[in-house]
Design a protein around this nucleic acid. Structure first.
Length: 103
DNA sequence: CGGCTGACTCTGG
DNA sequence: TCCAGAGCCAGCC
């Protein structure tokens, strides 16, 4: 980790409590030093094997953003459902109910 | 130093 | 609800 920005974003994601989700823009606002895209790119750099709950990071629509490679979207949904997050038929979560308030 | 790329967000049709 | 376009910035050739 050379860039403090990525490190910062990774740290914020670690603070997300179980059963809650955060949007890229939300995290960007918390850092106050980067934009939603930066969060997305930093998240993309997070390895699945990492201890960072990257699956709790979703887009502002409450939907899961598919990664560049391929499968991962399915895994993310499975992990969120395991934490109690419900998905509707559109594959989206109720942000008003599951969005992390920042505590 | 310059160009390309990308887990985004927002507005409008 | 879905699709397209514009704005945005760090990282990697």
């Amino acid at each position: 980790m050379k860039s403090p920005i990525y490190q910062q974003i990774h740290q914020i994601i670690r603070l997300i409590p179980c059963g809650k989700v955060a949007t890229y823009g939300q995290i960007a606002e918390i850092t106050g030093s980067c934009t939603a895209r930066m969060v997305g790119y930093a998240a993309a750099a997070i390895p699945i094997d990492s201890d960072i709950p990257w699956h709790r990071v979703i887009n502002f629509q409450g939907a899961i953003s598919a990664r560049s490679g391929g499968s991962g979207e399915t895994l993310q949904r499975e992990l969120l459902e395991a934490e109690g997050v419900r998905f509707d038929q559109k594959g989206r979560t109720d942000l008003e109910h599951y969005r992390w308030r920042g505590e």
